[in-house]
Simulated assay, not measured.
Amino acid sequence: MLDELRPLIETYGYLAVGVGCFFEGETAVILGAFAAVRDYLTMPGIVAAAFVGTVIGDNIWFWLGRRLGRPFLMRRRHWRRKSRRVELMARRHSTVTILSVRFLYGLRSVTPFVLGASRVHPLKFLLLESLSAAVWALLMGWLAWLVALAARSAATAENLEWYLVAAVLAVAAAIWIGYFLIGWLRTRNAQRSIE
């Protein structure tokens, strides 16, 4: 059944990986690796798409932070705690904080925003974050390739790959839904406490 989607995957696969890494990352790279194992895409192309999507996403968050700044952070109750942690890290070790942006799970989108709001120099952020994104894309690409190879070699059932892809998508969807639901509930509760 995956073979029926081959033209679609070959046409839009790299774009899908880039967009996926703009928003999240790991899931897109893993799905791309499954396509690469079947020779629909190439791993160097997936790593490149992951790198580009990651750099664009992190820099958009950085520039939003630079433009909207601290007042925006203070209005976002669920970001306040996270932003304080990032600010403390950035004050002590700004270079290490920038280099670790892609590896700070739970702080990944807030970190570039806070760094932008804290007036880290844009060129410093771009260079160090690009280095971090390259390391992350190579590491994730390699790990995803190993997972996809192991899944393919373990595939005794005809549709095991489909089940694995479906499981990865289901987990990613559940995480995103949970993230947005928690944010919505926090916002609603914050509004109720103000009233």
Rank of each mutant, 00 (worst) to 15 (best):
D39K: 12
L185P: 03
I182R: 15
L31P: 00
L143E: 02
W63D: 07
D39C: 03
A137P: 11
T111E: 02
S100Y: 05
K82C: 00
F113H: 07
V101L: 04
V86S: 07
L8T: 14
W176V: 12
G20A: 03
I194L: 13
V29I: 14
I98N: 03
V147C: 08
T54S: 15
R119T: 13
G53S: 08
A90Q: 02
G13R: 02
A144T: 02
F51Q: 06
A148N: 01
R92G: 04
L131R: 01
I46G: 05
S130Q: 11
I194N: 08
G20L: 11
L31E: 04
A50S: 06
L138S: 08
K82W: 06
A172G: 04
R85F: 12
C21D: 03
L15E: 02
V168G: 00
L146H: 14
H78E: 14
L139M: 09
A133S: 14
Y12H: 15
R67G: 07
R108V: 07
N59M: 10
N59W: 08
L104S: 02
W142C: 07
N189G: 12
A166T: 10
V52T: 11
V47D: 01
V29E: 05
L107K: 00
A35N: 02
L139H: 02
P44S: 11
P71F: 11
V86T: 04
L143H: 02
I177A: 15
Y179F: 10
